[in-house]
């Protein structure tokens, strides 16, 4: 009996001492943290996507409270959400232009040919390490949907031609698709940019048309029609968005429709002289 009492007394004593130490430490070592950080973090979407340039929502909340960033940086929040945070902190929203991911390829299976049948792991990354994949065009979309899988916001969907389509409403410009695409076809652009070059093929001339009917042939008509705004570089038109680019003039004479106009609702407008592709079926393989 005495043994048990000793043990209970000893352990109880140690407990009391340690508890006292903890209480003391809590008082002495307490770190004053701005309570607004917790509140602001609650208001953020908890996506931890990194689109704001900070490692996650908590560091972004700290930056917001510290005044190093403005709520507009968070592209995932709704407009009201951003205003609410700005109101709470008494700062500007920081009008951030909506940025979305854009795909620089229009070569779905109805217009772009496969030169080889690819078998193996069904990811674009894996296909790209086997002789660049089966697609005829070496720059084109492989269509195995790595971007659809990686998108946390359900903003990318493969269409019936195995080409990813970005839902600009849902896209938060987190940049995951930009990173994952082995052909580097995605890039982030302000959603107000309507003029778009949907091709990455660096070859000049009509030879590429055997592989893809909507490829850029570097004919330079768009650059001629929009002097100053469009320049040809590496056999591709480069649009200078700092100039007035709110015109459909450059797309009108494009023979293939590689330079196009994206309407606000995502509809694609091609030029008057661009060929109209009505085919819905897969292109047959080239005879070897």
């Amino acid at each position: 009996m005495a043994v048990i009492l000793t043990a209970v007394a000893a352990l109880g004593g140690i407990t009391v001492i340690l508890a006292a130490l903890l209480i003391l430490a809590n008082k002495k070592l307490y770190v004053q943290e701005d309570p607004r950080i917790d509140i602001v973090e609650e208001m953020l979407p908890h996506a931890n996507c990194g689109a704001c340039g900070f490692p996650g929502c908590r560091p972004f909340a700290e930056a917001l409270v510290g005044g190093q960033a403005l709520p507009g940086k968070c592209t995932v929040s709704s407009e009201e959400g951003r205003v609410q945070i700005a109101h709470f902190l008494g700062v500007d929203v920081g009008a951030q232009e909506k940025v979305v991911a854009r795909l620089a390829c229009a070569g779905g299976i109805n217009v772009a040919r496969n030169r080889a049948r690819y078998e193996g792991l069904k990811t674009c990354r894996a296909a790209a390490v086997v002789a660049g994949g089966g697609k005829g065009c070496f720059w084109g979309c492989l269509g195995l949907a790595d971007c659809e899988v990686v998108c946390d916001f359900d903003a990318i969907h493969m269409n019936q031609f195995s080409l990813p389509v970005v839902d600009e409403e849902k896209c938060t410009a987190c940049g995951d698709c930009v990173e994952v695409c082995p052909k580097g076809l995605f890039s982030l652009h302000p959603a107000s940019h309507r003029l778009w070059v949907a091709c990455k093929n660096l070859e000049a001339g009509d030879e590429i048309l055997e592989d893809c009917e909507v490829a850029c042939t570097a004919c330079g008509r768009c650059a001629a029609d929009a002097p100053g705004m469009i320049k040809m570089a590496n056999n591709l038109p480069v649009i200078d968005y700092s100039k007035n680019h709110k015109t459909q003039a450059p797309i009108q004479r494009c023979p293939t429709g590689a330079i196009l106009w994206i309407e606000k609702d995502g509809t694609i407008v091609k030029g008057r002289e661009s060929k109209k592709v009505l085919r819905k079926s897969t292109l047959p393989d080239l005879p070897t």
Partner: peptide
Amino acid sequence: GQAVSNLDF
């Protein structure tokens, strides 16, 4: 070896 995806290699 490498399976070819294009006979123009």
